[in-house]
């Protein structure tokens, strides 16, 4: 399986290592031609304004939108912002998923946190009931989801931190910073 990781800026190597550990062939995507022959794409955490700016400057927006419409795509943190239809702020977005996100929803770095979350959908790839250790770094929140969007994980107070629409996945937190590969396996399962 050949999967891309958008490598404009951010924690793309962490995703790459986990995917390679699961046997996938990984391509770092920096230019439109890097999307050729890929079966899926991960948009990593980083700064969403930086990633958006570079995607615009290197004419990646339309090729990315076209690729994403017909493939499995997963955005973590900044990546989930980039996938959203609405980030309540003027910045380049792929406008793919019917979710509204709030950037830096928990505050600044001093408010970054880690927490164990129950994520029932992971049952699909592992019999384990173990909670998922979720790491939130200046994280966004999924404020609202549209009709076709399934909520995969929420905090105890009900705020949404993971969602899926068709073959598109958004998480506010960073599975790539843990040794737990269940989310990556869940993503690879979405690729036909």
């Amino acid at each position: 399986m050949k999967v891309g990781v958008l490598a404009l800026q951010g924690a793309f190597i962490e995703h790459q290592k986990i995917l390679e550990g699961l046997g996938a062939e990984v391509v770092q995507v920096r230019l439109p031609s890097d999307l050729d022959d890929l079966q899926g794409l991960i948009i990593p955490g980083g700064e969403s304004t930086t990633i958006g700016k570079l995607a615009v400057d290197f004419d990646m927006m339309e090729p990315l939108k076209a690729f994403c419409r017909s493939h499995a795509v997963w955005g973590t943190c900044a990546g989930s912002i980039f996938l959203s239809k609405d980030a309540a702020r003027q910045q380049p977005l792929l406008e793919l998923m019917d979710i509204k996100v709030e950037r830096n929803a928990f505050g600044r770095q001093v408010d970054s946190f880690e927490i164990d979350l129950p994520i029932p959908c992971l049952k699909k790839v592992s019999p384990s009931d173990a909670p998922f250790h979720a790491i939130f770094i200046r994280a966004p929140l999924i404020e609202e989801v549209g009709k076709g969007v399934e909520i995969l994980a929420s905090l105890q107070d009900g705020r949404i931190v993971a969602a899926q629409e068709n073959r598109w996945l958004a998480t506010s937190f960073h599975p790539e910073l843990t040794a737990d590969d269940r989310f990556h396996r869940y993503f690879l399962e979405m690729i036909p």
């Binding site: 800026q9 951010g10 793309f12 980083g46 930086t50 970054s112 880690e114 200046r138 910073l177």
Partner: peptide, 13 residues
């Protein structure tokens, strides 16, 4: 982990 994590998000930047 979260301290180090922010630096990981700055990589390539």
């Amino acid at each position: 982990t979260v301290k180090k994590g922010l630096a990981q998000m700055l990589k390539g930047g």
